[in-house]
Design a binder for these strands. Structure first.
Lengths: 198, 198, 198, 198
DNA sequence: CATGAATGAGAATTCATTCAT
DNA sequence: CATGAATGAATTCTCATTCAT
């Protein structure tokens, strides 16, 4: 009866899931969990609303999955800073210029942190991925290296990481629409926080 | 003839309006116009839902009023920077440490800018109050003075204002819950953007 | 304590009641029991909403009182047709040209008959005041006289009364707004139903 | 791919729309736009309230659609008078005996003309379909023919049309419930207005 | 697997009615 | 007697979720 074998079905399933996840990321990041309507996600993914429920048990489950991906991506992206070429300051400059998917993930996490209607599980995930436990640990060596090289200003490196990351995170989340009111600042001006130099 | 005279009634009305506005500011700022439920605002204000409609024609009207207040407060607060004591850098430092009501206003404007379901009139108001037309104009003299005094780094003062204001705005909006994940950075670290010094 | 004696109070009470009844008749007749808002009636009567409840227990009670008045007025007006001068046909012509308060009563009864949300008691009152038991009985002698005088067409006089009254009632209720779409017909054309003559 | 093909879906959709329209016509005609509750329409149509909104954007849109249908049906019905068999008077007699759906449409237009809360667009539609511009134009030739044949009374034919149509309209709107108080008059008595004869 | 019709719970808004003054 | 602030139940509309096909 079935014209497709198991393997082909798996391929279809994976493709569909990927479509849905991409669509959901866009919509959730821009509109938050309340503003995002399943009808929008379905339309963006090019499928019917009903089909969403073959792949995800609920809106919440889909949201939680995206949060997990966002956290994973953020961690990976931070770890990869060490693979970037150049001195610590050059690594940091490159890291600061995120691609657009990276921005979507930041916005998503921001939405999850600040909105309500966020599933409890998503909140827990984000809480675990706090500054102290991950971000600062990962980036601290880079900053210490920068201070040794005299590129970065002296002082508590963990505070420096925390401040710089908070500022960049905040700017990411602000930059939601192509909004002329707030134009993204020059990277070099931001780096002054770290370098203490003009 | 009347059991409560006009003056007493006016007092009651003003009190109620103030209660509602305060409650609405909290709720709207934290949850956005969609996430904010009138039942929450009513409960926060300690009144019934129905009474909201004696004082405001609709949720939208209430939101628009708050946006107008937020814009007015922001402008006033920026203008008042010149009344603060001390050198330009000291004025700016004091200005950066906003009170909590000021923070709510920033969040509100952020919500209005980035969310769905925002009334058209609110959008227009915010568009008028863009960086170029107000904020930069108001703060530019302070920065020029700071540069003349050698406190601020050289360079285009308008770009410096814009960058600093954007960073501070972004941090305000991030700081929504009393969230330990992101702790607010030290002001002195932020001021490095302006001073170019450690 | 009280600066007004009982008699003066009674005068005030009666005046107020009359104000309210007049206002309510206008509003109920034009908008029906559902479309009529107590706020409108209060405004039309020049009093506060709360005061309505000193004089009437509820919207329904007020409506029922008006229906009673309407029925009484209708009956009185029909009985008075015999006091009008002239031949039967002239009496009937004059009767057909109702004054505006008479029209309001007709509309009110129409509203009560056709709308819902009408209190049960009002329905019962109107049912009792049906064509057979009152209207036809009252007008039948006039029609018999007209037939004897050769002014009215022959045939069952009760059917003639019923038809003519139904047509006039229907036209009254139609004439709600000063609506140019339906202009009220000439009385003489209507009288053809009764006379059978051009 | 699709479990129900487009044709089958279209059939379902058409059926549902028809169900809803029929139910809405009954309820709106009898209770007006304010008195008609969506819950009643949904129950009468045998569906859930939510489903109404798959087929119609709002209560107003549904009402406007019905008004359009009512106007169209009225015009068609008047034009078809010329297809009826017999002399002008026989055509007019047949035309006067409307079916029950035709009556509902008359009531609906009456409701729209006299009630509150009627959408602006519905008002405009009805205004365009006024006596002068349509009804009289359409029926005038029939009346002129009747006068030539000596069946109809002499005089301004447009006034005769207008009067007769107004009376019939008024009777239609009166006859809302199966109401024994007002029994519908004999057609032959009404036709006396036109013929001027017993 | 896939569709879209169908449902029902929840949110904004209106308004008759009550109540403190 | 008189006011108008205050309440809450009822109504329209939205949308996540289910289900027949």
């Amino acid at each position: 009866m079935s014209p497709l074998n198991e393997e082909q079905l798996q391929v279809i399933r994976d493709e569909r899931k990927e479509q849905i996840i991409e669509a959901a990321l866009k919509i959730f990041a821009r509109r938050g969990i309340i503003g995002a309507k399943l009808s929008m996600i379905a339309t963006e993914a090019g499928i019917s609303q009903g089909l969403l429920y073959h792949y995800f048990k609920s809106k919440d489950e889909l949201f939680i999955l995206l949060i997990q991906q966002a956290i994973q991506e953020s961690i990976d992206s931070m770890k990869s800073v060490y693979q970037l070429p150049g001195s610590p300051i050059e690594k940091l400059r490159a890291f600061t210029q995120l691609d657009s998917e990276g921005q979507l993930y930041f916005m998503l996490i921001h939405q999850a942190r600040t909105s309500d209607g966020v599933p409890e599980k998503a909140k827990q995930l984000i809480e675990q991925y706090s500054m102290e436990s991950y971000v600062v640990d990962i980036l601290e060596p880079l900053f210490i290296e920068g201070q040794k090289a005299g590129e970065f200003a002296p002082g508590d490196p963990r505070q420096l990481v925390s401040t710089y990351f908070t500022v960049v995170s905040a700017l990411m989340t602000l930059n939601i629409h192509e909004d002329e009111a707030y134009q993204m600042p020059e990277v070099d001006l931001l780096l002054r926080i770290v370098t203490g130099r003009p």
